[in-house]
Design a protein around this nucleic acid. Structure first.
Length: 479
RNA sequence: GGCGGCGUAGCCAAGUGGCUAAGGCAGAGGUCUGCAAAACCUUUAUUCAGCGGUUCAAAUCCGCUCGCCGCCUCCA
């Protein structure tokens, strides 16, 4: 039985979907106006593993993620600027070119991290009619009001407002902010539809005039369209808990009269050298930059060594530790695959050792997706697999290989490819083999200076050689 | 100011009432080796920020103190 931490109840709860074995899961996607960054990596790797594990546990998951390609205002006031439009002017491109360009980059980086694509990836701009429909329904039911071409949600009409984030409606009604948009009844009322100036590029017709949708609307509309009025899991970053998710609940439940989401999952934030990473602070690290230094699998492994609900600090020291740990694991997985024929099915059941590892792995994952604990099982498996290699226990190695495949590759989404590659070409291979033959000759003659020179020079080129018992192996090393 | 979280070995990080406080990185010793490297084996916290309390029993619950962080404005 899976237990997960529900932000709504602030407790770990047993996971019981509405219509087992089907699970509807919606995760807030990115606003596509800039390169993906560390925060995206943590968030989407975390939810990717959650989807993978739910599937491994027998659930049929429909995973929906939005792409926010409708610009939203930078500030709360009407003077704020639309991020996508701003970027479009900077790059001298159409707003939709910006959205398209960064959506491609987003998926490219998610692919590198080995995140599965969502089953449905929906762009907000494609659902304007559904959004105006929801706004109209809220107006009809008296939860919303018009003011100067804008439509606002009246939070005083929705008694449950604040139930997710712990805000008190009375406090919010008092008006905390300085600049309250004109026409709002309460400071904390949020926009469902905004009037657009004639020169505003992204705008659509609506019953209330030309405009564009409020930011919170798209997630309500698209999740309900594909997953129904009540969905099992809604995920997103902790920073979106308020106001975004609070507003989603308000507008969705006001419209349908039904509970919007059963389980709210929030991943925690990323810091860089102890500092919050944010776009407004300008200290965010993009994934293309990071991948240049560490490689996507190291980043994925590093993220999974923490817990999705804990904040995670990215530092070179921590990433380097993750890189080495993952490299060791990868090499063991490679090594145990070598001596055995993977297609040969062993006649025996997996021994108690492997069964125990698998059970421990599942126990960790069933406890609110404790990937850090799950990875520790992988290292324990590596140790046992090592023993089997020494004992030449071929059958056990097949079981070990299959378990790494199931737990490490399928569920955690790790690719155990050697960071060090083999020869790129036949020529390269032949050259290295030639050098190794020469070196063997020098060693036989005890010409240590010459043999060590070959070793040192090869290492400078990026080829490490390792003298084994009766033969010398080599591999490429990076960085 | 309001709401919430965190503080576990040199670093990263699980564990949230009861077996010997996971695991990774780094360190130390050893095996192997001509020497290395890699790999493997062994080892590294009488203690969980501090103080006080509850309990037969606390890193885990409660209170206070110190330190750090997040949300309350776009952000995953």
């Amino acid at each position: 039985m899976i237990h997960l931490y529900n932000t709504l109840s602030k407790k770990k709860e047993p996971f019981e979907p509405l219509h087992p074995p089907f699970v509807g899961m919606y995760v807030c996607g990115p606003t596509v106006y800039d390169d993906p960054h560390l925060g995206h990596a943590k968030s989407y790797v975390s939810f990717d593993v959650i989807v993978r594990f739910l599937r491994a546990s027998g659930y049929k998951v429909r995973y929906v993620q939005n792409i926010t390609d409708v610009g939203h205002l930078l500030g709360d006031t009407d003077e704020g600027e639309d991020r996508i439009i701003k970027k479009a002017r900077l790059e001298k491109l159409e707003p939709m070119e910006i959205a398209q360009k960064y959506e491609v980059r987003y998926f490219n980086d998610m692919d590198l991290l080995n995140n599965m694509r969502p089953d449905i990836s929906c762009r907000a701009s494609g659902y304007i009619p559904e959004m105006t429909g929801l706004v109209q329904s809220l107006l009809d039911k008296g939860f919303a009001y018009q003011a100067g071409g804008n439509v606002y949600f009246d939070i005083s009409k929705f008694g449950d407002y604040g139930k997710l984030s712990g805000r008190k409606v009375v406090d919010l009604l008092e008006g905390v902010r300085v600049d309250v948009a004109e026409g709002k009844r309460h400071a904390a009322d949020f926009a469902l539809w905004k009037k657009a100036d004639p020169d505003h590029i992204m705008q659509w017709p609506s019953p209330w005039g030309q405009g564009y949708p409020g930011w919170h609307l798209e997630c309500s509309v698209m999740s309900m369209k594909y997953l129904g009025e009540s969905i099992d899991i809604h995920g997103g970053g902790l920073d979106n808990q308020f106001p975004h998710h609070e507003c989603e609940i308000a507008q969705s439940e006001a419209a349908t009269g039904k509970p919007f989401v059963r389980y709210w999952l929030h991943n925690n934030m990323v810091t860089i050298d102890g500092q919050k990473m944010s776009k407004s602070l300008g200290n965010f690290k993009s994934l293309p930059d990071l991948f240049g230094a560490y490689g996507p699998m190291t980043v994925r492994f590093f993220i999974l060594q923490g817990h999705y609900r804990s904040p995670q600090d990215f530092s070179d020291q921590a990433l380097e530790a993750a890189r080495k740990g993952f490299l060791r694991l990868s090499q063991i997985v490679q090594d145990i695959g070598k001596p055995v024929d993977a297609s040969a099915s062993p006649v025996t059941e997996p021994g108690p050792v492997w069964k125990a590892h698998r059970e421990r792995f599942f126990a960790f994952m069933e406890d609110d997706f404790n990937t850090a604990g799950a990875i520790s099982v992988l290292f324990d498996m590596a140790r046992d697999a090592q023993k089997c290699m020494q004992d030449a226990a071929a059958e056990d190695l097949v079981h070990a290989g299959r378990l790494f495949d199931e737990l490490g590759s399928s569920i955690l989404g790790l690719k155990f490819e050697p960071a060090a590659g083999q020869a790129d070409t036949e020529t390269e291979n032949a050259l290295v083999v030639l050098l190794l033959e020469l070196r063997r000759k020098f060693r036989q003659e005890k010409d240590w200076a010459s043999s060590d020179a070959i070793r040192d020079r090869l290492l400078e080129i990026g080829i490490a050689i390792e003298d084994g018992k009766d033969k010398t192996t080599w591999r490429k090393v990076t960085g």
